[in-house]
């Protein structure tokens, strides 16, 4: 190919590329305008939380430590107590250190009472490392098994 033909072909390729960009200029915006628009997080697997069962109105954690045993990163700190006359234990302390969690979901799979699930939270921020420790019992200030409302 001679020089002129090569130059012509080169310029044409640049113009064709410019045409592609130009067409995109008039297409709908694809960027999510984040604080004003929110992503659909309905399938997002965020930091784990305890499930509230509608029958009891509370979680069903029996402090069996299965999640703590399977956890590759040793995130969990769980303590439990047996309510008076009950067969099963109840969790009295359930902390996860989110700074070491890798969201693998093994704890969710391994839970024998299915009381762990991914939350839909995706915006957690913290200024200090100590704030990354999540207290999963915080949404359950009162345990009906301990106050005698449920047996």
């Amino acid at each position: 190919m001679n020089f002129t033909a090569r130059v012509a072909r080169g310029i044409k390729s640049l113009l064709v590329g410019l045409g592609v960009t130009g067409r995109h200029l008039v297409r709908p915006v694809v960027t999510l305008q984040y604080p004003h628009q929110r992503p659909d997080a309905s399938h997002w697997g965020g930091p784990i939380e305890l499930v509230t069962f509608p029958e009891t109105g509370t979680h069903d954690c029996i402090a069996c430590n299965a999640c703590a045993r399977i956890c590759p990163s040793d995130c969990f700190a769980i303590e439990g107590k047996r309510p008076e006359g009950a067969k099963k234990m109840r969790a009295t302390k359930f902390l996860i250190d989110f700074s070491t969690c890798s969201l693998c979901g093994l704890c969710v799979d391994v839970c024998p009472t299915d009381t762990l699930q991914y939350s839909r939270r995706y915006e957690d921020v913290a200024y200090r490392r100590s704030l990354t420790v999540n207290d999963l019992l915080a949404p359950f200030p009162e345990d009906p098994y301990f106050t005698g409302k449920l047996a």
């Binding site: 399938h43 997002w44 697997g45 890798s102 969201l103 979901g105 093994l106």
Partner: peptide
């Protein structure tokens, strides 16, 4: 993400 819950570092195999 809609299948696995993660965007990049998946642990969805069992």
């Amino acid at each position: 993400e809609s299948v696995t819950g993660s965007r990049l570092t998946y642990a969805s195999g069992r």
